[in-house]
Amino acid sequence: MPASLLGPYSRTILAAAVLLITLGFALSGARGEVHNGLLPFFEWLETTWFGVAGKTWGAVFATVQSVHLLGLALLGGAVLAAEGRLLNVILTDTPRELVCSRCNRVFDIAMITLVATGVFMACGVAVKIYYLPVYWYKMLGLAAGALFHYFVRNPVLAQDLENVNPWLLKAMAVASIMVWFTVAATGRWIGFSG
């Protein structure tokens, strides 16, 4: 079985491999070719129902932006409460496992909201964002964050935390806060660019 060959850290190793492949891709000439090849897809996005609605009705676009921000607030709450608990700064009188697992549910709902509204918003301004480097930084950050959350952080937290090095938990919490605030900041910066 491939999973057993990689030992108990199979998902972590796979996530690291994906990260390395992504870095190799980013630094190679293949990136430019793929970027050029994606233009027709982004042009098509603007012709979809979402794209037309986003471009035609400014109020709809602005309302979806607001829902996106509300999803961001919820994601921030879930991340800060869970990671704050791992860092022993908030909810210290509640078991870590309980806080993290309950916050994960909130995180998932926030993520679904953010992706759904994000796709709608992207359709309305697809060609514009295609040419914005900061949009691609955000997508890279989002992919790294999602991989980290689901394939590194969650498997570690699924173990008995008494057997996990406390510094690893703290480092993971700091990394999680940093990656999600970076994704949010690059998202905000899209609005200032172009």
């Binding site: 509300l70 607030a73 919820l74 994601l75 709450g77 991340v79 800060l80 909130v106 949010a184 900041a185």
Partner: peptide, 14 residues
């Protein structure tokens, strides 16, 4: 101002 939403409203929503 926008990113602080994640702290203030995030906690309030929870």
């Amino acid at each position: 101002h926008v990113l602080t939403l994640m702290v203030s409203l995030g906690m309030l929503f929870l």
